[in-house]
Design a protein around this nucleic acid. Structure first.
Lengths: 272, 272
DNA sequence: CGCTGTGAAAGACTTCACAGCA
DNA sequence: TGCTGTGAAGTCTTTCACAGCG
């Protein structure tokens, strides 16, 4: 990922590992909850449990930020909230535009997690003229024609794309041309951007597919018995599925027959 | 991350690395697009570009599935689509319930990426009696009281939670009690589940915070002008230079004064 | 004594680079 | 010849385990 000079960190310990950065928001959320309950201090053990990680990892993560704890005691909640916020850049105001106000865009506009963390929805943009003016989450939707103006006038450097896949790249290009340097992409497509622009993506169906992968393995566990098979309904749980689902209708392997996969690749028709 | 099984020292090469599993949906999407354009074969280089990864990684990933390519030629698109689908468990039907039909829940219900990949939205569930019966994405919303019945009657093993954070754990407990063993959580809270249940989470604001972190670093460091040199790379980011924003108002450090962080920790009022 | 901070070891993932097959 | 498949090397991440300080 980090396509960067991986040599000699210019200054001392200034490189916080990506894996750590990705967890800071998690810690911050847990700490904010503690803060709201006026809890003054937490131990790495408690905070780790609240954030869903293990304590050694948490301490190691914090060690990259500095020594913010007190031995024998733990961490001061307020102080840590501030330090992490600052490290993440959340102590400053980040105007954000959301492009594509469909169901998802509306959900994002309404999402409280943004405002409470330094993000300000500067504008909602949609290509549908019929939506122009309609307020969503209290913010009027503006037409896509004004995208460049909006971005420039508000000094927006972070853009959120929640358009259909087909429009995403074009929207991305316009955002970048207008000055946006960080993009959060919800459209199921790979965006290409110039060097220096950051893209992160969230694909709702990818997570589900990963779950399916693991779910599939669960039923196999023990004997490896061929399962019931009834996929539709009926039996509640314990829906055992064959370990390596027997390929009933698999495409024929193109040519020859080399080593191929660990399990068979049956002949027959296409599944789709 | 996956909360489930920890071991998988399986007999043979049956252990596909998590990192690889997480990329399979990406490859699948790219392959599906090629398939729709009737492209018969792809090289690892082309497919990698389409998926936004590098070719060596892609080849290594595929090597865990088996030898599905042809040297000197590439991969047969249809064949690979099938193999990956099967590996992910997408050749079977996965009934899914979505609990919490707010903006996000509605967006998920309407999301085409589910249906096209073996996921079938078996039911939409919401606690608001006023919503009962209202169709969302063509599916009538059912009341939360019937959650257990719905899950059992439909043999649902995957549940999606898009309720407010406060309701998430309770919904989760009920889903699990009813037989769900995989949960996709969109609520910004850490769920606790019994062993054997898998939870994956998607926090919309976390990605934005990670972007903010990198964005913050860009402005500092001018020696390496954030060049806009057209690049085909999907994700571009680097810059690992001292940033250290000026702490204007930081909470006072609790007690004593040890080594503390890499930069100062100003006194003064609380930021929040 | 309790809990943080951190070297060092282990493990996971990525990249290299090239043998080997179609 | 062209491209896959894969050991081996390199890099990043996690975990261990304990020194050290409050």
């Amino acid at each position: 990922m980090a396509t960067g000079r991986t040599h000699r960190p210019a200054t001392r310990s200034r490189g916080i590992p990506e894996a750590t950065v990705a967890r800071l928001p998690l810690y911050l959320r847990a700490l904010t909850a503690l803060s709201e309950r006026s809890v003054p201090t937490v131990s790495s053990e408690e905070l780790a449990a609240a954030a869903g990680v293990n304590s050694a990892k948490l301490r190691k993560d914090f060690s990259y930020l500095g020594s913010y704890g007190t031995r024998g005691v733990g961490y001061d909640v307020e102080y840590l909230v501030y330090q992490i916020s600052r490290e993440l850049g959340l102590t400053q105001d980040w105007p954000v535009v959301i492009v594509g106000i469909g169901n998802l865009g509306a959900a994002l506009a309404n999402y409280g997690g943004f405002a409470s963390r330094g993000f300000r929805v500067a504008a909602l943009i949609d290509a549908d003229p019929a939506m122009a003016g309609t307020p969503v989450a209290g913010i009027p939707v503006q037409h896509a024609d004004d995208l460049e103006t909006i971005v420039r006038d508000n000094g927006v450097s972070i853009g959120v794309i929640s358009t259909p896949a087909g429009a995403a790249q074009q929207v991305c290009d316009r955002l970048v041309a207008a000055g946006v340097t960080s993009i959060l992409n919800f459209a199921p497509t790979v965006l290409s951007v110039p060097d220096g622009v950051d893209v992160r993506k969230v694909d709702l169906s990818i997570e589900l597919q990963i779950l399916a992968f693991h779910e599939q393995r669960k039923s196999v566990e023990d004997t490896g018995e061929a399962g019931v098979g009834q996929s539709t309904a009926g039996v509640a749980q314990d829906v055992s599925v064959p370990a390596v689902p027997d390929a009933e209708e698999a495409p024929v392997r193109p040519v020859a027959e080399g080593r191929k996969g660990p399990d068979g690749d049956m002949p027959a028709v296409m599944p789709a």
